[in-house]
């Protein structure tokens, strides 16, 4: 099954690792990566205003880092919620972080725009689980 993943992380190495892990279990996946949350948000906003989504990359799952300069993961989630778009509503956003801060984990789990929290480094088993959830939905 073809899934579109959007990866947002300021650390390029992590973007690379995450993509490699995902590719391990589904070779047909498509990716779009951003090192800046703000640019990712602008992209999503442009999708929302697009009449036709054909030939556009439309993410099914977003893996979002928490700690990023300028706009962090939570700020991204808030701005994303503000877009309040039905079209974008189908996207599943997961927060992906190496944080050990319990508050971050709880905040992520409780944020209405966030589907869950994932520990770094991403494992094949966990991404499989998430993708299955998405497919079942």
């Amino acid at each position: 099954m073809k899934i579109n993943y959007m990866l947002i992380d300021d650390r390029e190495i992590d973007l690379f690792i995450n993509q490699k892990i995902i590719e391990k279990f589904s070779t047909e996946s498509n990716f779009k990566t951003f090192t800046k949350a703000k640019l990712a948000l602008e992209y999503l906003d442009s999708l929302d205003n697009q009449a036709s989504l054909e030939s556009m990359f439309f993410p099914d799952i977003i893996l979002l880092d928490i700690n990023m300069p300028e706009m962090n993961g939570f700020q991204f989630l808030n701005k994303f919620s503000e877009l309040n778009s039905e079209k974008l509503n189908t996207i599943k956003i997961y927060m992906l972080s190496s944080t050990t801060n319990l508050k971050d984990i709880i905040d992520a789990e409780q944020h209405s725009a966030c589907s869950g929290f994932i520990d770094k480094p991403l494992s094949v088993r966990r991404i499989q689980q998430i993708t299955q959830e998405f497919v079942l939905d």
């Binding site: 650390r11 690792i17 190496s98 770094k120 991403l122």
Partner: peptide
């Protein structure tokens, strides 16, 4: 933590 996670990955 971050570099350790990356290294682990």
């Amino acid at each position: 933590n971050a570099p350790f996670s990356s290294a682990q990955g």
